[in-house]
């Protein structure tokens, strides 16, 4: 990766360069940039995924990991022998291999509409990967993309709180909620994150609640 196309100044702990390229392309289809605001790529979702894979979750630190491993029914949930770290590493490499065989280049270098079609096929389990179900990988990727776009920016995604601005979610509550809880007036405020308070960007009152900056709206 050259510095010039690393627009958000991201750094990576676990992911390898081809994996970053794959994920930047994929997550941008899942939550695209449009007139409502930045998509998952510019929200830092790939950084989020990288940090999650490097965390205890990435190695299933608090999950049951004993065998034997069987596929199970959809009702039985996660039954893969692989940890999330392994799922991402293996699936991306096998999908890229599939793309090179079928189209001569890795996923990240294909045209946008081709990428979109491939993602839909992965979701429907229509691409037979050698080592795991493509739907299983897609579902994990979508879950993590959603988390990364809407979790506190503390975790590397939701940069500039774009996910919260999209929803109109003000983040941390204020002491005013006691009064506002019965109100029928829509309440809009600049979102405040855990990261904002931890880094001293937003001050808190004696109870520890941040003070919101109200957004005035024409109604």
């Amino acid at each position: 990766m050259t510095l010039s196309d690393n627009l958000i100044g991201a750094s990576y702990v676990y992911l390898l360069e081809p994996e970053v390229r794959f994920l930047e392309a994929a997550v941008e289809h899942l939550i695209p940039t449009d007139e409502l605001g930045p998509g998952a790529r510019d929200a830092g979702v790939v950084v989020y995924i990288d940090r999650q894979l490097a965390s205890s979750w990435g190695v299933h630190g608090r999950m049951y990991r004993g065998g034997p491993w069987m596929e199970g029914t959809p009702q039985q949930g996660y039954q893969s022998r692989f940890t999330p770290q392994e799922v991402y590493r293996i699936a991306i490499s096998e999908i890229d291999q599939h793309c090179k065989t079928a189209f001569g280049r890795p996923f990240a270098q294909l045209a946008g509409d081709r990428q979109l079609r491939l993602l839909k096929q992965l979701e429907k389990d229509e691409i037979a990967l050698p080592s795991l179900s493509s739907k299983f990988f897609f579902d994990l990727l979508w879950r993590n993309t959603d988390e990364g776009y809407f979790a506190d920016p503390l975790y590397g995604g939701n940069r500039d709180k774009v996910g919260w601005k999209l929803l109109g979610f003000p983040g941390l509550p204020t002491s005013e909620y006691r009064r506002l809880v019965t109100s029928s007036e829509p309440y809009h405020a600049e979102p405040v994150s855990v990261l904002d308070v931890q880094t001293g960007k937003v001050p808190v009152d004696a109870e520890g609640f941040p003070k919101h900056v109200i957004i005035k709206r024409d109604r």
């Binding site: 965390s55 988390e147 809407f150 979790a151 506190d152 503390l154 941390l172 855990v194 520890g208 609640f209």
Partner: peptide, 14 residues
């Protein structure tokens, strides 16, 4: 303690 209690990812998922 505040603000860390308001961390959905940590408390709901991990």
């Amino acid at each position: 303690y505040k603000p860390n209690v308001y961390d959905e990812l940590k408390f709901d998922r991990h």
